[in-house]
């Protein structure tokens, strides 16, 4: 498929899902109540889902590109785990959700500093960073589990519910933050796109062609950690979206090289689809969006691995 065709197709899918999401709980009439529902419940939820997916898509594909590793995504190398641990600490200590967002930002930020600090040697060492990041992620999840086990039932339940990832509590300020983050990330991706597309022949060659791979990596890593922490602090983790968006986008485009913008579109579509699924009544209740991306993510990843094996 050509690039414009993929872009158009992804936009169409995304808009279709967005429209479906606005109507899934029943059609709305012209009345004042229906307008309030649309304006204060359905619209912010739909927008937050889409923007969140785009954020994760960019965060994931940026990391995958600069670390040259399809498994190197923020929720694998500790940024998501750090943000989640921050969320757990804040809910367990304060008993409420008031400080969840700053706690997630601090947690994600600290884990990024830790992972970068432990692996920095004259610049970012991609493989080391991934390995240390995976270890950090495991430790951070263990920490979250400890907190969940020690916390009183109410807080533990609240934490566990938050950490499954859902857009049910969406509100306009969250949408605004997500939009701002998307705009910032988009601008950075645009400004660094040229350099990012030329890291794939190794650092020696990139440097001898006048690029600064270490600086590009640092920018991408910091941005990715910030996006992921914000996302976790707002909606809870949405597993696998960051991991899948980049490879799906590249698969659709059929070329190598980074596909940050298309990954954003794929991420948005995935998150919207997950939230659509989250409206399905199952056994008299509904399941959170994060659970659906968890359930679909593993098999989807397997499918991508097998398909790319066949191609090469």
């Amino acid at each position: 498929m050509t690039r414009p065709a993929v872009t158009f197709g992804l936009c169409a899918v995304m808009l279709g899902l967005a429209a479906a999401l606005l109507r899934v709980d029943g059609p709305l009439g012209p009345g004042a109540t229906d307008r309030l529902i649309l304006l204060h419940i359905r619209l912010p939820r739909m927008l937050l889902a889409g923007l969140t997916g785009a954020m994760l898509g960019m965060a994931g594909s940026l990391l995958q590109t600069v670390l040259r590793n399809p498994l190197a995504t923020p929720d694998v190398i500790g940024f998501g785990g750090g943000a989640a641990a921050g969320v757990a600490v804040s809910i367990v200590t304060t008993g409420g959700l008031a400080l969840v967002l700053p706690a997630a930002l601090v947690g994600g930020g600290l884990s990024a500093v830790l992972v970068l600090g432990l692996t920095w040697r004259n610049g970012v060492q991609p493989l080391q960073l991934v390995l240390v990041g995976v270890a950090a992620n495991l430790m951070l999840f263990a920490l979250t589990d400890v907190l969940l086990s020690l916390a009183p039932g109410l807080q533990a339940g609240e934490t566990a519910r938050f950490l499954t990832g859902s857009f049910a509590a969406a509100h306009w300020p969250a949408v605004a933050w997500a939009a701002l983050a998307c705009a910032l990330a988009g601008a950075v991706a645009l400004a660094t796109g040229f350099g990012l597309s030329r890291l794939d022949m190794g650092d020696d060659l990139a440097r001898s062609q006048g690029l600064n791979p270490s600086r590009l990596r640092l920018v991408a890593i910091v941005l990715s950690a910030a996006l992921t922490s914000l996302e976790v602090g707002q909606s809870g983790p949405l597993p696998f979206v960051a991991l899948l968006a980049g490879p799906i986008a590249r698969h659709l485009l059929g070329v190598g090289g980074p596909a940050i913008f298309h990954a954003a579109l794929v991420g948005a579509a995935l998150a919207l689809a997950a939230d659509l699924a989250a409206h399905l009544p199952i056994g008299g209740t509904t399941l959170p969006a994060g659970l659906y991306t968890s359930l679909v993510g593993g098999p989807a990843m397997l499918a991508i691995i097998l398909m790319s094996k066949e191609r090469s």
């Binding site: 794939d200 022949m201 190794g202 020696d204 060659l205 440097r207 001898s208 062609q209 006048g210 690029l211 600064n212 059929g254 070329v255 190598g256 090289g257």
Partner: peptide, 22 residues
């Protein structure tokens, strides 16, 4: 400055990675 140097001097590493699909 790196870009200026890169216009004066080219370096070919021993085994450059060949990008996918190039």
């Amino acid at each position: 400055p790196p870009r200026e140097l890169a216009r004066a001097l080219a370096f070919l590493p021993q085994s450059p990675i060949q990008p996918e699909g190039s």
